[in-house]
């Protein structure tokens, strides 16, 4: 496989690009190091979204965070979808391209949500073959993100962290480490988040995500609709000291606040990243 290694994003905070903020970002470009977007929002091939993305790309490094590939599905990979992604990657040259360690479709029906895989040897073989297939088409390494889950499969025999580490070892993919997801899973299932984090190979972690959650009964739901909570900031600080400074995204998809709020959260993230730089020097 011929691999394209893009220019790196600095180990600073970035924000998610949402159409709600297009005008404000173009009029007053915020002081953040980079931006991330869902490539599916630009699959139409024209119009305002692509025009805005071109202008953003001329000012900021970009990262593509896919949500529609259904990487873990047992249906064939949707090559039309993958083809559109490749066209966008070739055009915008994002520093990172990421997808989720999850599935979202079976039998031709799509659930358009991130569903958990059972962590079994069969799933591991399957997801590794799929990551290989995608990386071969895209001709670049993919980052895979740990998801939140609201169930536990009885057949899971491999701890999630070890599952991801083995996928990295077999495919050469990287990891997008979502700290909020680690926290939400730990609370919902009474786990120690450090068990998961300690199993993750530091060199594989290329990017981190921070987000907020909502409470639904006894469960925390990863809605990306609230500020990052104190406990997640704490876990993030631990992760940055453990893995080293990494590009970190403030992810906010629902209940969108003014852009200034995202920038404020990014500033908090930058302060923690700076702490780590100082401690290391």
């Amino acid at each position: 496989m011929s691999v394209h290694y893009p220019a790196p994003i600095p180990a600073q905070a970035g924000i998610g690009l949402r159409s709600h903020h297009f005008r404000e970002i173009l009029d007053t470009p915020p002081s953040v190091a980079w931006m991330e977007t869902h490539p599916e929002n630009y699959f139409g091939g024209g119009g305002a979204p692509l025009r805005v993305l071109e202008r953003i790309r001329s000012q900021y490094p970009l990262s593509f965070h896919g949500v529609g590939l259904s990487l873990g599905s047992t249906d064939p990979i949707d090559h039309a979808h993958l083809g559109k992604l490749k066209v966008l990657i070739d055009r915008f040259e994002p520093a990172f391209v990421s997808e989720h360690l999850s599935w979202s479709s079976v039998g031709g029906r799509s659930f358009n949500d991130l569903l958990p895989l059972p962590y079994t040897p069969e799933s591991l073989d399957h997801i590794c073959a799929r990551i290989d297939e995608v990386q071969t088409v895209l001709m670049r390494p993919l980052l895979i993100e740990n998801i939140t889950r609201y169930l536990t499969w009885q057949d899971s025999t491999i701890p999630e962290g070890a599952f991801m580490a083995e996928a990295v070892k077999r495919t050469g993919c990287g990891i997008l480490l979502d700290i909020n997801n680690v926290y939400v899973n730990a609370v919902n299932f009474g786990l120690d988040p450090l068990d998961f984090l300690n199993a993750i190979p530091a060199r594989a972690v290329q990017e981190m995500h921070l987000a907020g959650f909502d409470r639904f009964g006894r469960m925390l739901i990863d809605t990306h609709g609230q500020p990052v909570c104190q406990e997640v900031w704490g876990l993030y600080r631990w992760a940055i000291h453990h893995f080293g400074p990494r590009p970190t995204l403030i992810e906010w998809d629902t209940n969108l606040p003014p852009l200034a709020m995202l920038v404020e959260q990014a500033t908090q993230s930058d302060a923690i990243l700076k702490e780590c730089h100082v401690a290391a020097s």
Partner: peptide, 16 residues
């Protein structure tokens, strides 16, 4: 142990 495809189908049946 259910094969992965069967697990995904069972989940789909529950959702749909």
């Amino acid at each position: 142990m259910l094969p992965l495809r069967e697990t995904q189908r069972a989940f789909a049946e529950a959702i749909v």
